[in-house]
Design a binder for these strands. Structure first.
Lengths: 328, 328
DNA sequence: CTGAAAGCGCTTACAG
DNA sequence: CTGAAAGCGCTTACAG
């Protein structure tokens, strides 16, 4: 059932049907009523593909992220999807695994589908999306990065000041009298580096020893746990641990509890993301809230303005806050 | 840059360009080489919309779920997305919130976009998708349900035997000598009811008291905690608790630990989903593994067969397993 | 207020 | 092996 069938049944031209469909142009009340009745009784739905053919838009945006199973990405992607849905867009989800080749594949695919915009969720993308090949794909379509930066004329970013976030955590521990503070770093993205820098700066500012106080871990619960176990095995008992992720913080907490240490009395722990993971911990993890919902909402607003009014916007930086739990 | 531009530059017809693009029909080696060179040097990408116009397919599927932030849905949706991506499809993500009106909106949208298939993730959809209005939207496109059932000729389902899963948990506790076992039920979906039935049946089978042993809770950590706190406040100390979700189980565990009870020595706890939540708990939660990745993979295989070969498949039921942790 | 016609960018029989 | 033409289902100037 297409617009021709409707036109025939209503005894009008397809142009008229199109007009009532889109409430555009002028149609006499009588004609409109007749066409609408036929539309209804045939349960007609216009083809978005045919419409896209002429408008060059399918009202679809692509969200590329590393892995939707990571709660922080899920929260961000969720809000992005909901906000775009309210605005009449569908969202294509892409799990790139942080892999360059996969990212390229996805960008090619959504480029062929002529998405109206792209949002890149995660700090990895500012490194991954370098190079002429990538830039070609990211050009000619509005792009916005959540927690990343890209030097392209059509790319905007919404970031959280990760460095400040970690420094908040350190200052918090210092205010509670902690001096022997360690940091667990879990990745090598720009964001992970800023966090580490925030740690180092805050430690220096407070005149605390920080040499060898940055521990490298993987992005898993087990790795957080093992890292702290290794530290304890060396005979080092910190009085504070700051982590770049709640997941590693939960692992750290596990290691401490299993070693019979009391948290926060003997060792305080602070995580990052203020996720469900933090709330699940017993005691509940103190964590840096980096506001993924706000980031997501701003991303959508920037992208929508870019798409619909092709306006130029500046990028936005949000300040994180400390969410007090019971581990500090 | 469209196919006409390429044709002109290569001095051939658009039909020939289309042939080399699709490796269809026959093209002389010389012509092919010339066209390919021009394609490359212009960085040409065919419009998926125009292709969709003729093929009536955008090679896109829609995944409707309640809320991608729920880890179990995230794991399912992740695998679905990855598997479809490998097969050359993009995935549209829809967070319906379990709401009927929203589900309808999403179905209308993806219907207009003529998606090639729909996967419904979650037990809510078998109740939500009842009614003529819904069925009209779900007709004419292959549909597959993960953890749900729908009585439509074109709808298949992959389910996990939830009832059996919970009975596994009960038998496990009984085998460890537990007798005063409670169940925490957190929703009212068909799946939640099967789980409860699994509890009741297993208790009956073992000759254990089960009247008033089903506690109603919300789908949150706090609610799981409060439910157990209320039970303890009544002076009841169970020796085993089975939960319909890891999240409520984590809450239950929290309540027990805070009440100074030892887990599993005094009270054993079993969750459901074998999620990261379970692993985060200290001690690590024993949990029923309901294999979301397997479910997702089967969904994709069923849907793909339906789409590409329009074959009829029967639905699949998977058996869950118990994942032994430290709380039992 | 309404219709005929062109155009969006492809694919696919059909001729040759 | 190659090209002319029709068709996919719409929207949009342009006439009238």
């Amino acid at each position: 059932m297409n617009i021709y069938d409707i036109a025939k049944e209503a005894g009008v031209s397809i142009a008229t049907v199109s007009r009532v469909l889109n409430n555009k142009g002028t149609v006499s009340a009588a004609t409109r009523a007749r066409v609408e009745a036929i539309l209804k009784q045939n349960n007609y739905t216009p083809s978005a593909i045919a419409r896209g053919m002429v408008s060059k838009s399918m009202r679809t945006v692509a969200v590329l992220t590393v892995d939707i199973r990571v709660p922080h990405y899920a929260r961000t992607a969720y809000t992005i999807e909901r906000e775009f849905s309210r605005r009449g867009y569908e969202v294509i989800l892409c799990n790139t695994g942080g892999d360059r080749a996969e990212t390229l594949r996805y960008l090619q695919a959504v480029n062929q589908k002529q998405v109206d915009g792209i949002v890149l969720v995660g700090s990895v993308f500012d490194t991954i999306c370098q190079g002429a090949e990538m830039e070609k794909l990211l050009t000619g379509v509005p792009v916005v990065l959540a927690n990343g930066k890209l030097d392209l004329p059509n790319a905007y970013s919404v970031t959280v000041d990760d460095k400040y976030g970690v420094s908040l955590a350190v200052e918090h521990l210092v205010a509670r009298g902690r001096k022997n503070i360690y940091y667990i770093k879990d990745r090598d993205t720009d964001s992970a580096k800023s966090k580490r820098d925030g740690f180092l700066e805050a430690m220096r500012r407070n005149g605390l020893e920080f040499a060898d106080h940055v521990l490298e871990a993987g992005e898993t619960l087990a790795s957080g746990m093992e890292t702290v176990q290794a530290l304890l095995a060396q005979g080092v008992v910190p009085d504070g641990i700051v982590c770049g992720e709640d997941l590693t913080a939960a692992g750290a907490l596990k290691a401490l509890l299993r070693a019979g240490l009391r948290v926060p009395e003997q060792v305080a722990v602070v995580g990052f993301n203020n996720s469900d993971y933090a709330h699940l911990c017993e005691p509940v993890l103190t964590s840096v809230d980096n506001k993924p919902e706000q980031v997501a909402l701003l991303c959508v607003q920037l992208l929508e303005s870019s798409i619909e009014r092709s306006e130029a916007y500046s990028s936005v930086v949000l300040q994180p806050e400390l969410a007090q739990g019971e581990t500090s």
